[in-house]
């Protein structure tokens, strides 16, 4: 089973050279720590920054420089600042190549729910509905099951949706899965030491298993 850092590390391998990437709050934020040296990538923060750098040192902290998770950050050489209209303009115009975000539920046809639990939790969708409606590629980073042990990979989402038919890939503590255009979670890789049987038990939606499923490789 992978911990959060390992999920982030596995997702980092999905990032293409010369790409623009938006990272959501939580595990996705950790992905930035594992980008291979030979991969050029530019991180977008939807509150108005391209070229987001690491967290600042104590002396570099600037209240006027935060990421979309409201954390203090720095800018890399070549960074650019803009307003929220341009930020969501570049998202909807598909200038951002990849969006990595968390989810409460994903359905086998690629629907995602991650913003509301009726009667319990209402934080809002923030930029997530915009990102999932327009991103060319969407990878979800999440736990395979919720705190009550229930699968988060479902035939249909039960929570209010964030977007429809948009998730392309899911990385959990147990597995890497592709969401097929015709529907279904295709098992691509197992976490080290995790059996196909364990993944089957944790997946309520349609799981497609073809041939031998390799273990994830970390280099």
């Amino acid at each position: 089973m992978l911990d959060k850092e390992a999920i982030a590390k596995r997702i980092a391998k999905e990032i293409q050279h010369n790409s623009y990437v938006n990272l959501g709050i939580g595990i996705p934020t950790l992905v930035a720590n594992y980008i291979p040296k030979n991969i050029a990538v530019c991180f977008q923060s939807e509150n108005g920054l391209l070229g987001m750098g690491p967290f600042p040192t104590e002396g570099e902290v600037d209240a006027d420089l935060i990421n979309a998770g409201k954390q203090t950050i720095t800018m890399l050489p070549g960074a650019a600042l803009f307003d929220s209209a341009m930020s969501f303009g570049m998202i909807h115009a598909q200038k951002i190549d990849l969006t990595i975000l968390g989810a409460m539920e994903v359905s086998e046809n690629g629907n995602i729910a991650n913003w509301k639990i009726p009667g319990k939790m209402v934080k809002g969708m923030g930029g997530a509905m915009d990102l999932v409606a327009s991103a060319k590629n969407i990878i979800v980073a999440m736990q395979h099951v919720n705190k009550d042990g229930e699968s988060k990979l479902l035939p249909n989402c039960t929570l209010p949706l964030t977007g429809i038919r948009c998730v392309k890939k899911i990385v959990t503590e147990l597995a890497v899965l592709a969401v097929l255009p015709e529907g279904g979670f295709k098992l691509l890789e197992r976490a080290p030491g995790v059996s196909v049987e364990t993944i089957k038990k944790a997946t309520l939606g349609k799981l497609i298993i073809e041939g031998e499923i390799p273990e994830m490789a970390f280099d």
Binding site: E46, D83, S84, A85, S87, F88, I91, H92, W115, K116, V122, G124, M125, G126, G127, A128, M129, D130
Partner: peptide, 10 residues
């Protein structure tokens, strides 16, 4: 009224 962030700014 919760609305998407892009919708809010547009």
């Amino acid at each position: 009224e919760l609305i998407p962030q892009g919708t809010l700014v547009f």
